[in-house]
Structures are given as C-alpha cells and as structure tokens.
Design a protein around this nucleic acid. Sequence first.
DNA 1: CTGAAAGCGCTTACAG
DNA 2: CTGAAAGCGCTTACAG
Lengths: 343, 343
Amino acid sequence: MVRTNSSPRLIDVAHASGVSIATASRALSGTPGVSDSVAEKVRQAARELGYVANLHARSLASGSTATIGLVVHEIGDPYFSEIASGVLSLAAEHGRTVQICHTGRDPEAEVEQVRSLVANRVGAILIAGSGFVDASVEAPMRFEVQRYAEAGGRVAVVGRHHLGVDSVLPDNRPGGRAVAEHILGLGHRRIVVVSGSLELTTVADRLEGVRDALDAAGLDAGDVPVLEGPFTREGGRECIRRMLADHPRTTAVIALNDDMAIGCLSQLRSSGVSVPGEVSVSGFDDVAVAQDLSPGLTTVRLPMAEMGARALTLALKEPGSRARRQRVPAELVVRDSTGPAAR
Amino acid sequence: MVRTNSSPRLIDVAHASGVSIATASRALSGTPGVSDSVAEKVRQAARELGYVANLHARSLASGSTATIGLVVHEIGDPYFSEIASGVLSLAAEHGRTVQICHTGRDPEAEVEQVRSLVANRVGAILIAGSGFVDASVEAPMRFEVQRYAEAGGRVAVVGRHHLGVDSVLPDNRPGGRAVAEHILGLGHRRIVVVSGSLELTTVADRLEGVRDALDAAGLDAGDVPVLEGPFTREGGRECIRRMLADHPRTTAVIALNDDMAIGCLSQLRSSGVSVPGEVSVSGFDDVAVAQDLSPGLTTVRLPMAEMGARALTLALKEPGSRARRQRVPAELVVRDSTGPAAR
DNA sequence: CTGAAAGCGCTTACAG
DNA sequence: CTGAAAGCGCTTACAG
C-alpha cells in the first residue's frame, strides 16, 4: 500500500533506522535504556522524515496528555487574556499545549466546557474567574470537577473558592479595603460603589473589603449606595448614568473592576464631569491599559499573568493530600483618577 | 479486573444497554442506521453512567479531530484576544475545541507552535497576525503549513499573505489611506507616522496607504518621518519621546495600531501636550477600549472577532481548488483625538 | 540494551 | 438494523 499525503509514522522511522518501533519510541521519547548511538540514529531518521508523533496515539497508549485545559469567562476581556498569557507562556516552557474555552459567564456553559475538556482527556484543567455566592449554582461544576479529580485529573482555579481544588486566590477583600481607605483618606464621604453582579464571589469579597474600611472609619456602610450592573465597560457607563440621576452629589466612585472603572471614566467625560476634580474614580485589577488612560486609573494591582502561571504550576505538581491555597497580595496603585474631595 | 476511579468507556455503555460497541458507537455519534428505540436506550445508559467519549481514541480511529489550533502573536494583546474571542465563540457553536498558542512575534516560535499543532493532529490551523515582508523569514513557516495542508489539514490565516492558504485580509492599505486623508483634511501638514517594525507586512501595507494619501494630496512622502518602535503601547511612548525631541513642531501623529496610539496619548499627556489641541493622534484596529479613552481615539475599525470567526468558517469549509481570499473592509471612526491643525 | 506483543478506546468497512 | 473484527499509532510491561 502506498501512503500518499500523510505524515510519517513511528514505524517509518523505525524502518528507516533499522530498529523496532519499541526502540524507536524509547529513543524519541527520551526513555532511558537505549544506547546513545542507536538513539542518535533514530533521531536523525525522524528529523529527515519530518516525523512528529501522533499525540492522540500517544495519549491513548500512555493514558496521559500534555494538554492543559483553560476555562475563562471571556477571552476578549483583558483580565482573562492576561491570565491566559501567563498560562500560555509557562505552558510553552513545559512543552504543554493549552486548550482554551470561554463561557460568557454562563454557569451552564462552564460545566459543558469542563466536560468537553474531560472528554479531550486533558492532563489538567485550569478555571479562571469568579465563582458564585450561591453554592447551589456551583454544584454541577463542583461535581464535574471532583469526578475528574478523582479519576486522576489535576485541577487548579484562579480567583475562585468552593470548588475544593488547588487555588490561587487574590486578596480581593484586603484590596477592597485598601482602595476604600485611600478614598476615605482623601476626605470623600459621598461615595458610590459601582459593582458587577452581587452573585459573584469576587464582587462580594471586594465589597466586603470596602465595607471593612467604612466600618473602620466609623461610617455606616448602609449610606454608601451599591450600583449593580454588568461587570463590563458598558456596565460602568450605565451605573454612572444612574449615579448622576440618583446620587448627584457623589464625589467618589469605587468601581469593583477596571473594566467598569473605564466605563465610568468614559461616561463621566461624556457627561462633562471632571475626574478627579469633581468626582474621583478607582478601579480594581490593574489591566495593562489602566496606566495609559487619561487620567491614569487609580486601582488595585493583581498580577494576572503570574496568577495564571501559578495556577498552572499547582496543576503540574503532584496533588497534595488536601487542596492547596495560594494567596496573591493586592497592591494599591495610586494614579491620577483620584484626588481630594473638593466640595 | 475492577476499574476504579476512571471514566466509563464505550464498552461499559454497550454492556449497560445490551448492545455491541459498534451499535453503541453509532447511536452516540448519531450515525444513521440505528433504530430509534435502541439509540435512545444507549443514550440513556450513557447519560446515567456519565459517559464522555475519549476524543483521543475517537481521533485515532476516525482520523479526524474536532480540535482547532489557533496561533497568535500574544494573547494578552487586545487585537489578538478579540480575534480569539470570535474564534472561540464560533468554535463552541460547532462543538469544536480550540487550542491556542502564542509566539511573542518570534518567527521560530511560530513554526514550533505549528509543528506542535500538527502533532496534536488538529483538524485545522488558524494563524493570526502579520507576516514578514522578507519572504525568506517565512519560508520555514510556509513549508510547515504546506506540508500540513497537503496531508489534508485545513489552514486559514488572518491578516497575513504569502502563506498560500485561505486568508481573511483586512483592508490595511485602504484603511491607512482613509485615516491619512482624514488627517490631511483637517489641515495637518507636519505629520509623523508612528509605526511598528517595517518588517511586518501589516505595517508595510498600512504605511503604503498613508503614502497613497500623501501622494494624492501632492505631498512628498519623504517629508513625513516614520518613527519605528515596538508595535506596543510602550513603543508608542518611545516614539513620542523621539518625536518631541526631533520633530517638535509636529501637529499630527498617525499611529499604525491602537496599542501604539494609546502609548502616544499617554506620553503626550505626561509631556503636557494637549490632544487634539496641539497634536492630533490616530490609531488603527479599534480595539474595544479605544472608544473609552480620553480623548476617544480616532481610528480605523477592523472587526477583529468577526475576522476570527470568518477564518474559522473558511477552515471548516471544504478546501477550494485554490486559496480563497476574503477582504474585510476597514472603516474610519472619527472620535475626539483628532482635530483641525491649529498652528 | 533491544524486540515481539498486548493493549489504550474508539470507528468503520464488511457480513449478515 | 446489528455485530464481530480489524485497525488507528503509539507505549510499556515482559522476555531475552
């Protein structure tokens, strides 16, 4: 039979170098127990034929894969694309490939994607993005993840609790506290929080931190309106419109992520409100563009790429006897979008 | 033998539903030729067992994969993350999974990544991002891609010529011309182009468009300095510093992508130069954040997500007798970063 | 150090 | 419509 137009197989390499496929396999995968001279001969033949091992066959035979699965809410969102960047870079160093899926923050799509990764028999699954305050929403996800883990799969999450697996957890609450203290320290008292869905644990944690600071300052958290909208730039714009209508005397806006903060800046500008002259605005995450905005965005820095890389590192390690947690410090970065309370 | 802790296999489903694995396979994959009642029984059993087919086995047996490979320069860059977003969304609709790799704009890493995708026997490869003007730099890539295509693989590229495969090509040249005409129309004559590496075809094409406009206006393109730097925000800042030093009377900056334009705005602001009062700035791409900058960025819109989706559509189609090309129109979007030449 | 052979979990002609 | 069997391209005990 003539094999036209298709990739050479291990057996072709074996023939070309005059050894068995067992030896060829060992030589190519670097398994010890092959004489150097033979190994070199095999590698040479492989190179000449342009041989690339079929990873499906390899996975099927060996029962393990070099592929990593990464689940994010939305890859077009800088928070997630920066995490993905950290994962991809480290994965490449380890010779791992990465399969990415995004879920549009839909809990059901999320479960579906995890199932599909399991079907692909990826060696590890990384999940980035907030979980849900309501544990029952997460139950199916938790079930899927646990089943995979019990079958020997490795899982690590970024910014998500409740899943019972290794996790990289940014200091959302201390970060929220730090930024709120900054705002309070500037003398602001008529403050509004611009927030994504309160169903998200990330939002809940950051908000908790803001309340810690209000409490510590002897203020009543109940006096600080929380405007809820989509966790996006458009959500930020929307909330500012509501703020201008319902809380016109506000002097500071604490947005719970940079995307919303960017939307806030944009809407304030369109509405002719000066920042920070009339209203101060802060964000959270420190996405790359935050420093290039005008005014530069005061925010809480999270090292997204590093968080992604750390999650991968956890997943690549042997599992511990129980879930590991790595805290990632959040650092307040003061730029030009916040200033002293004027009025 | 007891199989503990591992996923159910097709044979388990077959046993549970009292049919052969052949029938079970057909029922589950939707191959016609199975009675409805039997098919339903099999599906039911699969559901109860939580069966998920092993895609490696499936690929090996069938010789085809549902996985798509996507190569980008840097996933953290919004241009690419928006393309990726389009690809991921459409892929999910088609039940395809996507493996992403980024290359840091390194031609060698690029080839390596393509080889790894080939090894994974992905069903199609999508490559996004500029090629190189110097064809010899692209030769290895072209070789790899062609070999894959000849072996039956499908390839499509976004914003890249020279690879001899299906392509989605944004109107870089007409876009460059449009934005330059806009700048000229505002009366600017002391113009500077802020540009990524001239080795990149994307840069070369956009620049060509700018020159078209200069020519048409009867100007000498040689009088317009082209400041070259990294195709990033930091590159934009760098170029502005050079511009302020070497071409202080400049009234308009044409940046060849939004990332550089954002860096330009940032550096001009730090340097106390008002935009568009003293200097106008334009970008290219219209990344999501462009409209939320202050001032809003005048730029050339490219529908990145759609371009990604189109490339996938091409790759999913049967190959044509020759490489297909889809042009994507570029649309000038005028915002607040450009204004009449003042001085 | 090397090889023959079983097996990974599917799909798909080939028969019936 | 259904099943027995070959085969996809590897890896890895098991012998030697």
